[in-house]
């Protein structure tokens, strides 16, 4: 028995199940709030994040500075907002780039099979063996990091795991009747990959995007922590955390706790959404079978 579910109905079903998923809903709410905080917040709570104020460094939270000031006198609440923009933009772009490359790579490998599959997946295996952080640090020493460059760099080093997932998914899909039929009538490999395999693996891809974004936000935090993040006076949550830790023994907790919480919340939110999406797509698959 098969269902006659249309793509539109399938999508609305996924969305409905996603919203019913409590953890995913929590993740969505957190994410929306953090997006509003980072992108609309500075319009409501305007602060000067370019000029330093050496007469007001490391002030504890209080009137005028709800989250205190940092080591150069910047308002920490305002800085948390502008840093959030950088972290989220890099995270989302890098997550999308990594997943896109990985999806195409894995689909081509899985659909082609034979020596091409072997070569493509051994390249992936080799890449996985090299820590992404190491590659990023090397790259960041060769080019001056900016938001765009960091997003691309992180994206380019994060496609390997999605490639493996997509290849496994493709091998399964490639055995289905409609793909066999396409082959029989001489359909091209490009058409098979881009019109049939990737759209049918969208569930896997979507789930992976959320995890990739979360990983990318953490990666940019690591890189910034090691001093190779975006150029000042721009900053991101990882860089804020890194500098804040310097002043741990001064008791300046307000330089550590806010960016730390922001990173945890956003990464957790994307993971919750990813979990929810996975469950939602699983339901659809079960229904389809």
């Amino acid at each position: 028995m098969t269902t006659t579910e249309t793509p539109e109905r399938a999508r609305s079903g996924v969305l409905r199940r996603l919203i019913r998923h409590r953890l995913a809903l929590t993740g969505l709410v957190i994410l929306v709030l953090m997006l509003l905080f980072s992108f609309l917040g500075p319009l409501i709570y305007g602060t000067d994040q370019v000029h330093t104020d050496l007469g007001a460094v490391r002030l504890p939270p209080g009137p005028g500075h709800p989250l205190g000031t940092d080591e150069l006198g910047h308002d920490v609440l305002g800085r948390l907002m502008v840093a959030g923009r950088v972290s989220l933009i890099i995270g989302v772009i890098a997550g999308l780039i990594g997943t896109a490359i990985g999806a195409v790579w894995g689909a081509v490998a899985g659909y082609s099979g034979g020596w091409l599959d072997l070569v493509l997946m051994r390249i992936v295996d080799t890449g996985v063996a090299i820590p992404a952080l190491f590659l990023l640090l090397v790259a960041a020493t060769l080019v001056t990091p900016s938001v765009g460059i960091l997003a691309v760099l992180i994206g380019v080093v994060s496609w390997l795991v999605p490639a493996r997932l997509m290849r496994a998914e493709t091998v399964t899909i490639a055995e289905r009747e409609y793909i066999k039929a396409l082959r029989a009538i001489g359909g091209s490999r490009t058409r098979a990959v881009f019109r049939h395999i990737i759209p049918n693996a969208i569930g896997t891809v979507m789930v992976n995007v959320t995890f990739q974004i979360a990983d990318a936000i953490l990666l940019v935090a690591y890189v910034s922590f090691l001093g190779l993040g975006v150029a000042p006076p721009q900053t991101d949550w990882g860089a804020m955390l890194s500098k804040g830790i310097t002043y741990t023994y001064d008791g300046a907790w307000w330089l550590i706790v806010p960016p730390g919480i922001a990173i945890i919340l956003v990464v957790a939110a994307f993971n919750f959404i990813g979990d929810g999406l996975r469950d939602a797509f699983e339901v659809r698959k079960r229904a389809a079978q």
Binding site: V50, H51, T52, L54, E71, L72, P232, P233
Partner: peptide, 8 residues
């Protein structure tokens, strides 16, 4: 910090 102060 010094370079940021100079920029400022």
């Amino acid at each position: 910090g010094m370079i940021q102060e100079l920029k400022s």
